[in-house]
């Protein structure tokens, strides 16, 4: 697996932790341990997304700052995987 794919997989894994924790916190809004987990992984995820966007392509519009070409529009589409 190349570095781009591996990094994208890591981001997906960490974002999954956040999605699942978010739903848990929606129904357990006073669970301090869960909030600590959320804050911790959210910081890591933001850092990883920024690094990925600088190295490869922007994953969302907040990371889409461009100079020579519009990087957001040129980025690969999520459904392109598998055999081409």
């Amino acid at each position: 697996m190349d570095n781009e794919k591996q990094m994208l997989k890591d981001i997906s894994m960490i974002d999954f932790v956040l999605v699942d924790l978010m739903l848990y916190l929606d129904t357990h809004p006073y669970d301090r341990n869960a909030m600590e987990y959320y804050n911790h992984y959210n910081r890591i995820k933001n850092r990883m997304e920024k690094e990925f966007s600088m190295k490869y392509y922007p994953l969302n519009k907040n990371m889409a700052d461009s100079t020579k070409e519009w990087r957001w529009g040129m980025a690969p589409l999520p459904w392109e995987g598998g055999c081409r």
Partner: peptide
């Protein structure tokens, strides 16, 4: 707002 990735990776080799 849109995230340009799948929630879980999908790479199907055989149509």
């Amino acid at each position: 707002s849109y995230e340009k990735r799948l929630q879980y990776p999908i790479n199907i080799k055989e149509p």
